[in-house]
């Protein structure tokens, strides 16, 4: 397995720890299906992925993972309410056109939602913006402003406020700095990436 600390991606092992064994998982923006593959092998989940790129669909098929080629901006209207134990949105929230709409859709379809995103409030981002007066470009945010797929950045604190305003309960949070855990109190400053487990108040399993 590739080392998450080297690849920059959010640790799949951390996500796997949040998923109860034997559950049913929908992975939005599943890419080549590596996360679902890991969850299948280590947590015994059944699941399905959604991605927009043809090459990713083929990669999933190669692993025997069910996958749907679709655009997350169109929402999840084909999916029944509460039909999945977990809906996962991994490193994708910041690329979504209408994140609030998708968050609400995920909370409708999933009994739990697992979502992670790069924390724009991370200290290096703040310093680059405040001192250099330029958009942050670093290991966790490697894109220039003009060629980035990321159109909706938020800080950890912004995200918590959003959860509050759409009535999502935060069940757990994992804050990482380059895939090592950081303490919650400093997280909005010290974490490069944040991951939350959410549910609606009425969804109790």
């Amino acid at each position: 397995m590739t080392d998450d600390r080297i690849t920059n991606r959010f640790s799949y092992d951390e996500i796997a720890r949040l998923v109860a064994p034997g559950t049913h998982v929908l992975d939005l923006g599943c890419g080549s299906g590596d996360l679902l593959d890991l969850l299948r092998r280590t947590r015994g989940v059944t699941g399905r992925g959604v991605d927009i790129q043809e090459e990713m669909i083929r990669a999933c098929l190669e692993k025997g993972i069910s996958v749907f080629q679709g655009d997350l901006d169109e929402g999840l209207k084909e999916y029944r309410s509460q039909s999945y134990d977990y809906v996962i949105l991994n490193e994708t929230l910041q690329m979504i056109h209408d994140p609030v709409y998708l968050m609400n859709e995920m909370l409708r379809v999933g009994k739990r939602v697992i979502v992670n995103f790069p924390n724009f409030g991370y200290v290096v981002n703040r310093l680059q913006l405040a001192w250099l007066g330029q958009m942050p470009v670093n290991r966790t945010l490697p894109y220039e402003w003009y060629d980035t797929p990321n159109i909706h950045f938020c800080t950890r604190r912004d995200f918590v406020r959003l959860c509050d305003s759409i009535g999502a309960i935060i069940e757990a949070a994992v804050d990482l700095r380059r895939n090592r855990r950081v303490a919650g109190v400093f997280a909005n400053f010290a974490a490069t990436d944040c991951c939350f487990v959410l549910r609606k108040p009425e969804s109790r399993v």
């Binding site: 043809e54 999933c60 069910s66 749907f68 080629q69 084909e78 999916y79």
Partner: peptide, 21 residues
């Protein structure tokens, strides 16, 4: 085709879908 896929998904069948451009 998507109607077929959605019906299968709702029946919890193992289905993959791709739309080739």
């Amino acid at each position: 085709s998507k109607e077929i896929v959605v019906a299968l998904m709702r029946q919890e069948k193992d289905v993959s879908y791709t739309e080739i451009d």
